Computed example of a mutant assay.
Amino acid sequence: MPRTEPWTIKRVLDWTSGYLERKGDEHPRLSAEWLLANVCGLSRVELYVNFDKPLEASELDAMHAAIERRAAGEPLQYVTGEMAFRHIVLKCERGVLIPRPETEILVDAALEGVDATKAKRGGEAEAPVRVLEVGTGTGCIALSVASERPGTLVTATDLSPRAVGLAMRNREALGLEQAVDIVECDLASGVDPELMGSFDVLVSNPPYIPTQVLREEVPAEVADFEPQLALDGGDDGLDVFRRLLDLAPAALAPGGMLAVELFEGSLDAAAALVRERAGWATVEVREDLTRRPRVLVAVREGQ
């Protein structure tokens, strides 16, 4: 970014938008706004009421570095280091999957499971609702459930040490240490054995993109920067889902809910896998806001 003077907020926004557009950014103005807001410590609205404010030299240097990272294709959330998800703001960093808006539908399903359990128990304070999340990443699902349904106890796991560390930092920033326990392990192998069979909801956004789709169809911004461990679901996208289906009977209480986000082309096969197994009372596939199949919800038999 040339250093001619004066570099006001408006001038930086306009220049950045044009530069990112030439670099192929699909939403260059939005990217410019988020980058500059992050650098200046302002909201996007505040940028527009401070158009004539010149940037300091340190802000220009930080903005230049951020622009080049974004121009190279790095996701905006990694560049700014944070993103909003439902009612919370999360720290984001490379090596950990970026939460997607469609995952909010998965949180809605998990909250339904929490509410249904509370209704069955008549709101008994001595019997808190327990949720197990497998593959927590940033902690977006676990922390949303805990913040939106106070009193719920969430156990969240992840195989990645980096994800566990980030989820813990997000938990602490939101003051949810007493509500969310974060465990580094494969699936639920590190969860307290005494809790197994007591969870009312098992929720997961596992790796679910079929390997061939990941190689040939996923945008470079995702495939080149986000962790393969959190993306690749095997040949049919259901490798981890099958393991979750094996885990569910041991983890869930009678009448408990399994809610899993999956690749749109894999959901019918996933539902068929559930129906093949005994012990499930219901199974359904739910669509996201774009009317694409997105979430499988299955409920165990029993009360």
Rank of each mutant, 00 (worst) to 15 (best):
E93L: 10
D192K: 00
D239N: 08
G165I: 04
E112K: 01
T136K: 00
L60P: 07
E284N: 02
R292N: 13
L252E: 05
D52H: 07
V180H: 02
S58E: 15
E102W: 03
P206E: 04
C40S: 12
L231P: 12
R162T: 14
T155L: 07
V131W: 02
E59D: 13
G302H: 13
V164H: 00
T117N: 03
F51Y: 10
V203W: 04
L231S: 08
E261V: 06
R275V: 15
D61W: 08
P101C: 06
G139C: 11
R3F: 14
W15F: 15
R121G: 15
S266V: 13
V191I: 11
T136V: 06
V222W: 09
A109I: 06
S58V: 14
A251D: 09
K10F: 14
G73T: 02
V274W: 06
G233A: 08
E261C: 07
R3C: 06
V218C: 06
E226A: 01
L273C: 10
E74Q: 09
R94W: 12
M196P: 07
P206C: 10
V107R: 00
N38H: 10
A156H: 01
V283A: 05
G24A: 03
L153H: 08
S160A: 11
T290K: 01
M63R: 00
R215A: 15
K91I: 05
W34L: 07
G18H: 04
L60N: 03
A250P: 04
E216M: 05
V295R: 00
G165Y: 03
